[in-house]
Amino acid sequence: ALNRGDKVRIKRTESYWYGDVGTVASVEKSGILYPVIVRFDRVNYNGFSGSASGVNTNNFAENELELVQAAA
Protein backbone atom coordinates (compact mmCIF):
# COMPACT_ATOMS: atom_id res chain seq x y z
CA ALA A 1 0.00 0.00 0.00
CA LEU A 2 1.08 3.55 -0.62
CA ASN A 3 1.85 5.96 2.19
CA ARG A 4 2.04 9.71 2.64
CA GLY A 5 5.36 11.02 1.34
CA ASP A 6 5.93 8.20 -1.15
CA LYS A 7 7.13 9.26 -4.60
CA VAL A 8 4.93 7.75 -7.30
CA ARG A 9 4.87 7.74 -11.10
CA ILE A 10 1.51 8.29 -12.78
CA LYS A 11 0.31 5.52 -15.10
CA ARG A 12 -3.11 6.98 -16.04
CA THR A 13 -2.52 7.71 -19.72
CA GLU A 14 -5.12 10.47 -20.04
CA SER A 15 -3.72 12.37 -17.08
CA TYR A 16 -1.88 15.65 -17.65
CA TRP A 17 0.82 14.28 -15.37
CA TYR A 18 1.15 10.90 -17.12
CA GLY A 19 4.71 9.63 -16.59
CA ASP A 20 5.44 12.35 -14.06
CA VAL A 21 6.50 11.70 -10.50
CA GLY A 22 4.49 13.20 -7.66
CA THR A 23 4.38 12.90 -3.89
CA VAL A 24 1.54 11.18 -2.06
CA ALA A 25 -0.19 13.87 0.00
CA SER A 26 -2.70 11.57 1.65
CA VAL A 27 -4.47 8.25 1.27
CA GLU A 28 -8.21 8.05 2.01
CA LYS A 29 -9.28 4.95 3.91
CA SER A 30 -13.02 5.34 3.32
CA GLY A 31 -13.22 3.11 0.27
CA ILE A 32 -13.62 5.80 -2.40
CA LEU A 33 -12.65 5.01 -5.99
CA TYR A 34 -9.61 7.31 -6.21
CA PRO A 35 -8.27 7.42 -2.65
CA VAL A 36 -4.69 8.57 -3.24
CA ILE A 37 -4.08 12.32 -3.43
CA VAL A 38 -0.84 13.09 -5.27
CA ARG A 39 0.90 16.48 -5.25
CA PHE A 40 3.07 17.62 -8.16
CA ASP A 41 5.82 20.17 -8.60
CA ARG A 42 4.25 21.65 -11.73
CA VAL A 43 0.71 22.87 -12.12
CA ASN A 44 -1.54 21.66 -14.94
CA TYR A 45 -2.95 23.76 -17.77
CA ASN A 46 -5.37 25.55 -15.44
CA GLY A 47 -2.57 27.87 -14.38
CA PHE A 48 0.85 29.18 -15.24
CA SER A 49 4.01 27.79 -13.76
CA GLY A 50 4.88 29.61 -10.58
CA SER A 51 1.29 30.79 -10.14
CA ALA A 52 -1.02 29.50 -7.46
CA SER A 53 -4.00 29.42 -9.80
CA GLY A 54 -3.28 26.02 -11.33
CA VAL A 55 -4.07 22.65 -9.88
CA ASN A 56 -1.15 20.65 -8.54
CA THR A 57 -2.94 17.83 -6.76
CA ASN A 58 -5.06 15.04 -8.15
CA ASN A 59 -6.76 11.88 -6.92
CA PHE A 60 -5.70 8.51 -8.30
CA ALA A 61 -6.43 4.87 -7.65
CA GLU A 62 -3.50 2.82 -6.31
CA ASN A 63 -3.36 0.77 -9.51
CA GLU A 64 -2.69 3.95 -11.51
CA LEU A 65 0.45 4.65 -9.51
CA GLU A 66 3.88 3.07 -9.55
CA LEU A 67 6.03 3.47 -6.45
CA VAL A 68 9.32 5.16 -7.32
CA GLN A 69 10.68 5.83 -3.85
CA ALA A 70 9.11 4.99 -0.49
CA ALA A 71 8.99 7.69 2.15
CA ALA A 72 11.90 7.51 4.56
Rank of each mutant, 00 (worst) to 15 (best):
G5Y: 03
A70T: 08
F48V: 14
T23Y: 08
A70Y: 13
N44H: 11
A1N: 10
N44A: 08
R12S: 06
F60L: 02
E64K: 00
D6I: 03
V27A: 02
G31K: 08
E14V: 15
K7L: 12
A70L: 09
P35F: 15
K29N: 11
A70P: 11
E28F: 11
S26R: 13
F40C: 03
G54Y: 06
R9P: 01
V8H: 02
V27I: 10
R39M: 12
E64F: 03
G31A: 12
D41P: 05
A72K: 12
A71I: 09
L67V: 06
I37W: 15
S30C: 08
P35S: 13
G50W: 09
K7Y: 06
V27P: 01
G54H: 06
K29W: 10
Y16C: 07
A70E: 13
R12Q: 05
A52I: 08
N63T: 13
N63A: 11
W17H: 03
F40P: 00
S15V: 03
A61N: 11
V8W: 02
W17C: 04
Y18V: 03
V38T: 00
G50T: 08
Y18G: 01
L65W: 01
P35C: 15
D41F: 13
A61C: 09
G54K: 05
V8K: 00
N59H: 12
P35H: 11
V8E: 01
A25H: 12
S53D: 13
R9S: 04
A70F: 10
R42M: 04
N58M: 14
D41C: 15
Y34K: 10
G50I: 06
I10A: 01
A52C: 15
T57H: 09
D41R: 10
A70R: 15
A25C: 15
V27C: 04
A71Y: 14
V38F: 02
W17M: 02
N58A: 15
S51F: 08
D6L: 04
E28A: 12
S53M: 11
V36H: 01
V68A: 03
R39Q: 10
S26V: 08
R4N: 06
L67K: 05
V38A: 00
G5T: 02
I32G: 14
A1R: 15
D20M: 09
F48I: 13
V68D: 01
R4I: 13
F60M: 01
A61H: 08
G50V: 06
N46H: 09
T57W: 14
T13N: 07
N56D: 12
S53L: 13
T23Q: 05
A61D: 07
L67G: 01
E14I: 08
G54V: 05
R42T: 06
Q69P: 07
T13G: 05
N58I: 07
Y34N: 08
R4M: 09
S26F: 14
E66R: 02
V8T: 00
Y16N: 04
V43S: 06
V43P: 14
T13Y: 10
A25M: 15
Q69D: 08
Y45M: 15
G5P: 00
T23P: 00
R9T: 05
N56C: 15
I37H: 07
Y45W: 10
A1Q: 12
N59R: 12
V36G: 00
I10K: 02
V55D: 07
T57K: 06
G50Y: 07
T23F: 06
Q69R: 09
G54F: 06
V43I: 12
V68I: 10
E62V: 15
G22A: 03
N59W: 12
S51M: 10
Y45H: 15
Y45I: 15
V8M: 02
K7I: 10
V24E: 00
N46R: 03
V68K: 01
Y34T: 06
S53Y: 10
D41A: 09
D6R: 02
N46W: 08
S30V: 09
G50P: 08
N63V: 08
V27D: 02
Y45V: 15
V36Q: 00
G31R: 06
A52Y: 10
S30M: 07
Y18W: 05
Y45C: 15
S30I: 07
V21A: 01
G50H: 07
V8I: 01
A70G: 08
I10Y: 02
E64L: 15
F40Y: 01
T57P: 03
S49F: 10
R4G: 04
E66F: 04
Y45F: 10
S26E: 11
E62W: 13
N44T: 05
L2M: 05
